[in-house]
Amino acid sequence: METILSVQDLEKYYGGKNNVTKAVDGISFTVAEGQFMGIMGASGSGKTTLLNCISTIDRATSGHIYVRGTDITELSSKRLSKFRRSELGFIFQDFNLLDTLTAYENIALALTILKTPAREIAPRIKLMAERLEIQDILQKYPSQMSGGQKQRVAAARAIITHPSLILADEPTGALDSKSARLLLESLETLNRDLSATILMVTHDAFTASYCSRILFIKDGRIFNELQRGTDTRKQFFDRIIEVVALLGGDSTNVF
């Protein structure tokens, strides 16, 4: 399998000479094509900083990030925009849909930014909508949708451009448990059927149990790593809880 993402000795420091905060302190890992990878950690562990660096929203202090072999820490800001729109897809905790656009237009926006020819847009959205079961709400505005529907629209927007990597930052954070489960199942489907590579940040063990591999981060360093292997989700969840207990963070049992 091809390596999609490779992070090498990534460091991100905040602050000045005398009071340095090491938000990310020498993290290295790789993600292969088709992996559904989770990053877990407590608040302040540096997981969001890590994601921001990978998503090029923030710049790393040192180290390298390769996406399909390109070192994105060395790109100019113009190339970065191009990289973002063609290689990355985003799913945010608060959906980040434009409330002035319909669901259809929100999804189309990702394509128009990519300068996709207009005639290709409709069939691609139709296909994606079927896969995520949002055909019925395409003409609705975000204010007319439920949270779960919004997040699935956001997922559709993230994946319609066929990005190399989908970055999800606490995607279930603002959803009720039923919607969360629906969304995660959709992500799982996308991962399985389209072999989409997903990198998901979460602090929720249940959400994390949908991943195939999980990195645990504490104080800016990798603390532990779990592979799901052939476990059932229940078994995997229990193993996650053990690590989380070790981490001294979240320990909610949703089963």
Binding site: R84, N96, I113
Partner: peptide
């Protein structure tokens, strides 16, 4: 809204 456009990769 504009910040989102940028995150989606729209150029400056």
């Amino acid at each position: 809204r504009y910040a989102l456009l940028r995150k989606l990769g729209a150029e400056e």
